[in-house]
């Protein structure tokens, strides 16, 4: 009766063997966000997840690949068939598994949604060394509880992702970045039907338009005449990444934040240069303690001995 219990690949099996069942262990990806979720305990053994594209199925809009695949390699492979999976890390050296584990979305989130919506299936190694499958290689699925979304952003503390199936999309036909030094980013966002990104540093507003060339040009005409063509987005300050309610971005300034910043309008992510912003990331006000308890109990349920990525927490 095990009709769809497709066996895991040899690469994933050997990854599980390498992770084993005992001792502190962590996955080494592209090392692009190695320090974001706390410092890894010095004694942890480092392993690498399998790398490489297993299968890209353009008609299904899905791709299966090893979690250790560099995003740059994935992007190139998908582009051969006119598709993409908008993980959008800052560096193409980041691995697919690393981006998912850290859970940071790229600047095109306004159009494509967060990275957590891209993961359709994950094969991960549990704390006891067993292989677990979450989700399935189909684009729509409510079969059982959503362990995939739980894994995204869990910084490898619940299970170590070995192989994934990601949702793909067609690459937009046209792409234009524009900037203005005197436009109001809020007015700009409202004026547009479907910007892929609206970025703001307190003075300058950048807009990314994607889609059919005729649509992109039509949207560009809606923008105030002060907008001019630019090659790409500004460099994103890499000091601190704040996560704020989108409306809290009104009134942000470099002096409040303690340094230069780029804010994602409509999303709430703020990239700040300095290490000590005076604005804290917002958090749940009611039931904070209960949520913290759920987080602790979840970690204990999935990794009772705390061997997975010790020292880190989401």
């Amino acid at each position: 009766m095990d009709l769809s219990l497709a066996p895991p690949s040899a690469a994933v099996l050997s990854f599980a063997e390498e992770v084993g069942a005992t001792g502190p262990v962590a996955v080494l990806g592209g090392r692009t966000h190695w320090h974001v979720a706390g410092e890894l305990d010095a004694g942890a053994r480092l392993v690498r997840a399998p790398s490489g594209i297993v299968a890209h199925e353009p008609e299904e809009l899905i791709v299966r690949c090893g979690a250790g695949t560099p995003v740059g390699e994935l992007t190139e492979a998908l582009a051969e068939h006119g598709q993409m999976s908008p993980l959008d890390p800052a560096s193409p050296d980041a691995t697919v598994g690393g981006v998912l584990s850290v859970g940071y979305s790229g600047v095109r989130r306004l159009r494509y949604g967060p990275v957590r919506d891209l993961l359709l299936e994950a094969r991960y190694v549990a704390a006891n060394g067993e292989l677990v499958k979450a989700g399935a290689p189909v684009v729509k699925n409510v079969t059982g509880f959503d362990l995939c979304r739980l894994l995204v952003g869990s910084v490898g503390t619940l299970g170590l992702i070995g192989e994934v199936v990601l949702r793909c999309r067609p690459i937009p036909a046209a792409t234009r970045w524009l900037l203005s030094v005197d436009a109001d980013p809020w007015v700009t966002r409202r004026a547009l039907f479907g910007a892929s990104a609206v970025l703001w540093d307190g003075n300058t507003t950048w807009v990314l338009l994607e889609g059919y060339a005729a649509d992109v040009d039509a949207e560009a005409r809606v923008l105030s005449p002060s907008f001019t063509e630019v090659a790409g987005p500004p460099p994103l300050p890499a000091g601190v990444r704040l996560s704020l309610a989108p409306k809290a971005l009104r009134g942000l300034s470099a002096s409040v934040l303690g340094g230069p910043f780029v804010a994602e309008i409509g999303i709430g992510t703020v990239h700040v240069a300095s290490g000590a912003p005076k604005v804290a990331s917002s958090s749940n006000s009611s039931g904070d303690a209960r949520v913290a308890m759920l987080n602790r109990e979840l970690k204990a349920a999935f990794d009772p001995t705390g061997r997975l990525n010790p020292g880190r927490r989401p």
């Binding site: 989130r109 957590r116 979304r149 995204v152 759920l294 987080n295 979840l298 989401p314």
Partner: peptide
């Protein structure tokens, strides 16, 4: 008890309990 899973901010701290709850 009552608590809020997820939040208005793009990346609520901790695990994606919101994602786990939807579809449960």
């Amino acid at each position: 008890s009552v608590c809020v899973l997820g939040g208005p901010e793009p990346d609520a701290p901790g695990y994606d309990l919101r994602g786990a709850f939807v579809g449960s």
